[in-house]
Write a protein that binds this DNA or RNA. Structure first.
Lengths: 238, 238
DNA sequence: CGCAAGAATGCTGTATGCAGGATGACAGGA
DNA sequence: TCCTGTCATCCTGCATACAGCATTCTTGCG
């Protein structure tokens, strides 16, 4: 999902001086079957309903989803490019298993992207944008207090995505989002024990403070530490 | 093309002590129609035979390539996920145009990845690996001397890809490769005047030296400077 | 003469059919 | 008992067919 550069930028364009309403009108987003299928299958994989290493039976899955093989196959090719599945000639699509090494590598890339985003965000994010990230963080804290795992986790992901967006670099944000979605399952099962959350919450708090102070170096350092800790938290579930 | 994590790692495993030949045997690579089409269409776009903003006529292109619409459409979905084309509901595939902003954003991400790769490479690359990158650089210098543009350009790309590989992080290398291929066309037309090469060549020389000295900070700095210069070189062709 | 509504054409999106290769079972032989 | 070769079945890969929507041309009206 590295696409949609222009589309995403449009949402971030806040200044509309001298621009007609027509120009900033977003096309009605018709949910196509393609998008629907890609989303559904991606969720099936991320949520673990399609096990790693398992082959995807086109006829079966197509029937289950109520579509013919053609659009289903097209969706599978799309997901293959994202790296979620692997296309084996003559044997179809296989759900890719993330090795510990893969996860480690991806976290390193994520760290590179997030620290870069952090430095950019410290420079160019508006106070309002930073405040909205702070609100997101506070929400997350609320769910942490009540141990509401799924909602806590969602805010956590949204926080990191939001930080990437604040960089003002839409391509960076899109790339970050793609990697984060691939790591979602691993990170979710890795956050099973609420006592593991404490460290992450503290790091998030520090990140918000650094961002509010626009202290780029400190923010980058915290992020690096945060992802290193994520690696440790996640390691034993693989 | 963020896929192929495991596959790419295999190539880098050089030590084969106590390992049977069977274990390191690479499966016969059957070039599927899918791969063939993806490669061909990608090249058509990157080389400019399919103009930006232009719609891709499935019947037409299919006939030109000698395949039916089904595998062609599947290849298009694949490329859409890479971001080369955009899928417009009811109107098919459109070649995406890179705005200056897109290019700038992508170069920033490329810089983040390459500097990260550089630091890793300084730590873990073997002397032999560094030497082979030096050879690649020397080859490039040869083509620079004779102003052999295409070959020069290819070595240039290979050099950066090689640096990413030396990081030992296969995912980073794959991500880097994906971005670099999308920028290939713009960088190629941006290198039309040989007098522009001089700076790039000098920077490459400095990069090799820094890598040989395993001076991570210096290497990262040169890379950042190099990509900043790339942005300037490329700007006026857009 | 310009514009708009409608029809015709062409293209995309989806379903289905068919051929070739993969998978698994089973029998015969070492 | 285990291995190997053969056969049946199933599934994938590709082609083709058809329905519905976009686009464009044409025609009628202002």
């Amino acid at each position: 999902m590295l696409g949609g550069l222009a589309a995403e930028r449009r949402d971030m364009d806040v200044s509309n001086e001298g621009v007609s309403v027509l120009d900033q009108m977003v096309p009605v987003s018709r949910r196509t079957l393609h998008d629907e299928l890609v989303g559904r299958i991606r969720d099936l994989i991320i949520e673990g309903h399609l096990a790693p290493e398992s082959r995807i039976h086109e006829g079966q899955l197509g029937q289950a989803l109520g579509v013919s093989r053609t659009p289903l196959r097209e969706a599978l090719k799309f997901l293959a490019s994202e790296g979620l599945i692997e296309l084996v000639p003559g044997r179809g699509a296989v759900v890719r298993r993330l090795t510990p090494r893969d996860v480690r590598d991806m976290l390193d890339v994520l760290a590179a992207l997030e620290t870069t985003a952090a430095r950019l965000a410290c420079r160019r994010a508006s106070d309002a944008e930073i405040a909205s990230l702070r609100r997101l963080h506070d929400e997350m804290m609320g769910y942490y207090a009540t141990r509401t795992r799924l909602e806590y986790f969602k805010r956590n992901q949204a926080f990191h995505a939001g930080l990437a967006t604040l960089s003002g670099n839409a391509f960076l944000a899109a790339t970050h989002e793609g990697i984060q979605s691939r790591l979602r399952r691993i990170r979710f099962v890795g956050s099973d024990a609420p006592d593991k959350w404490a460290g992450a919450v503290a790091e998030h708090e520090e990140m918000v403070q650094a961002l509010e102070a626009r202290d780029a170096d400190r923010l980058a350092a915290v992020i690096a530490r945060h992802l290193e800790a994520t690696w440790i938290r996640v390691q034993d579930v693989m």
